[in-house]
Amino acid sequence: MSLLLGARAPSRRPDEPPWPCPALAAGGSLRYGRRPASRKRGAGMKTTRAARRFRALAGAVAGTMLGAAVAVMPGTAAHAASCYGGAVGWNSSASHDNVMLPNAITGPNRWTTTSRCGDINFWVDGGTGTFNADVRVCFDRTGCQGSWKQFGTGDAEKWKVIATDVRDGTKFRIEINYRFVPQGGRRYGGKVAF
């Protein structure tokens, strides 16, 4: 009440806590089940062998889970290996018409994203010649992306992200628009990781 009326709070020593509770002032805790700092572990409180084993096991499990989570974090080599390790192959002939992948002739009619990758990644094999094409992703629910990712000289044998932050379980296809169709056609191939 005195603080509300403008009176000064009583001064305290520098080592005195700002609260009046004696348990907290002695370095203790008000949490249920915690012993005050004044009681030492050996003073009447025994830790059972089962409790020590449980703590050791809980620490080992937590450490293992943390290590596994860090090992597969996005941007790490382990994440890239798990993402690209599940890639599926694609093949297509250069055409004046846009090509949709996958096509129902060679496999499933749609691909479905997984938890391995957060993005959809596209790879063109290097031995197939220069892949001059634009690529975009077409989702079942929302339709095709408005922008195209361009592939050309120097893009072979490299992963390129063509859609980011895609939810797991999303069905999609990939549309390829060839900018240059060599006379006699040419067959291209690569991988898609999702």
Rank of each mutant, 00 (worst) to 15 (best):
58 A>M: 05
120 I>T: 02
91 N>C: 06
18 P>V: 11
172 F>V: 15
85 G>N: 09
159 W>R: 00
154 G>E: 13
97 D>T: 08
30 L>Y: 04
139 F>L: 12
132 N>T: 12
150 Q>P: 09
25 A>G: 05
68 A>D: 09
69 A>G: 04
174 I>P: 01
92 S>L: 13
34 R>E: 07
9 A>N: 04
65 M>F: 09
90 W>E: 02
168 D>L: 03
157 E>K: 13
156 A>G: 01
10 P>E: 15
184 G>N: 06
3 L>M: 13
113 T>W: 03
50 A>G: 10
13 R>D: 07
35 R>H: 12
105 I>T: 06
156 A>S: 03
72 V>A: 10
91 N>Q: 04
101 L>T: 02
16 E>W: 15
160 K>L: 09
160 K>W: 07
146 G>K: 07
9 A>F: 08
182 P>L: 02
187 R>S: 13
129 G>T: 06
176 I>G: 02
110 R>G: 00
184 G>R: 07
70 V>N: 09
68 A>H: 11
69 A>T: 10
82 S>C: 11
162 I>N: 02
28 G>Q: 01
115 S>N: 13
94 A>H: 07
58 A>C: 06
107 G>L: 05
41 R>A: 10
84 Y>A: 11
4 L>F: 14
81 A>C: 03
16 E>D: 15
69 A>K: 01
157 E>I: 08
114 T>K: 09
102 P>W: 03
15 D>P: 04
84 Y>N: 10
129 G>R: 02
28 G>L: 03
108 P>F: 09
127 G>Y: 14
20 P>K: 14
124 V>A: 15
26 A>N: 12
17 P>N: 07
30 L>W: 05
94 A>V: 06
52 R>P: 00
77 A>L: 13
83 C>F: 01
7 A>N: 08
177 N>Y: 14
18 P>L: 10
194 F>M: 00
154 G>I: 14
21 C>F: 14
43 A>C: 02
57 L>E: 12
172 F>E: 03
114 T>Q: 09
27 G>Y: 08
66 L>V: 15
112 T>N: 02
188 Y>D: 02
19 W>N: 14
33 G>E: 03
133 A>L: 02
157 E>C: 08
181 V>K: 03
26 A>F: 04
158 K>A: 06
104 A>R: 12
138 C>W: 14
48 T>A: 09
132 N>E: 15
159 W>D: 02
149 K>W: 05
40 K>G: 04
116 R>L: 12
163 A>D: 00
176 I>W: 05
27 G>N: 07
175 E>Y: 05
39 R>V: 01
170 T>M: 02
190 G>A: 10
106 T>Y: 11
97 D>L: 13
143 G>L: 09
30 L>K: 04
169 G>T: 07
1 M>S: 10
171 K>P: 04
36 P>I: 02
84 Y>P: 03
79 H>V: 04
30 L>V: 07
107 G>K: 08
151 F>D: 04
46 K>D: 09
131 F>I: 06
153 T>L: 11
67 G>L: 15
10 P>I: 12
116 R>F: 07
100 M>G: 00
131 F>D: 01
74 P>D: 04
13 R>L: 12
96 H>A: 11
33 G>R: 10
88 V>Y: 01
173 R>Y: 00
